[in-house]
Amino acid sequence: MFEARLIQGSLLKKLVDAIKELCTEVNWDISNSGINMQSMDGSHVCLVAFNLRADGFDHFRCDRPLTLGINLGNLAKILKCSGSNDIITMKADDNGDTLTLMFESEKQDRITDVDLKLMSIESEHLGIPDQDYSAETSMPSSEYQRIVRDLSSIGDTVNISATKEGIKFSAMGDIGTANITLRQTSSADKEEENVKIEMKEPVLLTFALRYLNNFAKATPLSSTVQVFLTKDLPVQVNYNIQDLGYVKYYLAPKIEE
């Protein structure tokens, strides 16, 4: 038996909206420590992983580990039936073939319950080694969103370089070129509005903007985003979900043959 009650139900809706375009059919691994998902996109170029900790829920019960095969598009359709202030409860039996979702209004005077059909999904699990990052940047998630959106009007790919000067995003296309450089800041009113750069070595990597733009769909989940760059390795774009967990995206760099 699995049961999880999330007071801030809108977080679940935002999470599904943040990943559903990259991954359509995914396995959620449920254990008494929480809910985990890892899934590659259809082209096997990027990976999406999330963790929702059991202690982030108002109530969490999982008698034995379960794998729930979910069509995220269908789950998103169901979550559209929830109100933005609804409390969401998820339930599944150990050998069941449905996930029950219950939406309770704030005043608990309106209750919706929906059964989502589960599916059997074969999925590969990638082992991601602990990496020593060349550069780690933290910035407002709205800033990241704006950079990748703005550069998408210039080109399809972006060069990201981290140096002592800051972190520079460059795009080139038929209409011209654009560079956006962020410098470290410490003067913002709120800590999360600052740009922080920790650099061990200068690094330059090239990525497809289409994916980086897709990662920005997680912006409503967190006020900040961390971008980890490592020479010759996938970039990690990390959104921490306050008091609940995280969603992380990994994207393979484009490389010279």
Partner: peptide, 14 residues
Amino acid sequence: VLPQPPLPAFFTGA
């Protein structure tokens, strides 16, 4: 246009 290698080329299977 630079080629786009698949992710498993970077990460091993668990």
